[in-house]
Simulated scan of single mutants.
Amino acid sequence: MSTFPLEPQFLTVEQAAAYTGTSVRMIRRLVDQRRVPVAKIGSLVRIRISDLEAYLEANTRPAR
């Protein structure tokens, strides 16, 4: 029996861009500015979905 979750918990930069509907450049900028925490595995950058959602929630303004 596998102990791995069925849903991925981490996204690549490209997947995070698709998830948020933004560009890869925007995600890299957020990472470089340390506005979104990342996990680095060697040279690979992975973004936890919950961290990305927390950033989006904190930066969402209500409609007027």
Rank of each mutant, 00 (worst) to 15 (best):
K40T: 15
R64Y: 12
P8N: 10
E53I: 01
S43K: 12
I47G: 04
P37G: 08
S43A: 13
R46W: 12
T3V: 13
R34N: 12
E57P: 01
D32R: 12
P8F: 00
L11P: 06
A58F: 06
S50A: 14
D51A: 07
T12C: 06
A58S: 13
Y55V: 02
L56H: 06
P62E: 06
P8Y: 09
T20S: 14
V38A: 00
M1H: 11
Q33C: 08
A17R: 07
D32F: 08
A58R: 15
P8C: 07
Y19Q: 02
T3N: 14
V38H: 05
V45R: 08
L11K: 11
N59E: 05
I41L: 14
A18I: 09
K40D: 10
I41G: 07
S2D: 13
F4S: 14
P8L: 07
T22V: 05
V24C: 11
I49M: 02
M26H: 11
V24M: 10
V38S: 02
R29T: 07
R25E: 13
V45N: 00
Y19I: 04
T60K: 08
S2I: 06
A39P: 00
K40N: 13
V31T: 02
A18T: 14
V36I: 15
T22N: 01
L6P: 07
F10E: 04
I49D: 01
E53D: 13
R61M: 05
V45W: 02
V13S: 06
A54L: 11
L11R: 08
A63E: 09
N59C: 02
S43Q: 11
L6F: 13
Y55Q: 03
A17E: 04
D51E: 09
I47K: 01
R46M: 08
V24R: 15
Y19D: 02
M1E: 11
R25M: 09
L30M: 10
L44Y: 09
Y55E: 01
A18Q: 15
L56R: 10
S50N: 05
A39D: 13
P62R: 05
R46V: 01
T22W: 01
K40C: 10
L6T: 14
D51K: 04
P5L: 12
I27K: 08
E53M: 04
T20A: 14
Q15I: 00
Y55A: 03
E53P: 00
V13F: 04
D51N: 09
A58K: 12
A16Q: 06
V24G: 10
A58Y: 07
A18E: 15
S23G: 08
V24D: 15
G42H: 06
R35M: 11
P5T: 10
R48G: 05
A16N: 07
F4T: 15
Q9L: 07
R25L: 11
A63Q: 12
N59W: 05
T12M: 07
V36S: 05
Y19C: 00
P62G: 04
S50P: 00
A58L: 10
M1A: 14
T22H: 02
R28F: 02
F10I: 05
L30K: 09
V38L: 05
T20K: 08
R64D: 11
G42F: 08
A63C: 08
L56G: 06
I41C: 11
A18P: 00
P37D: 12
L44T: 10
L52E: 01
L30V: 02
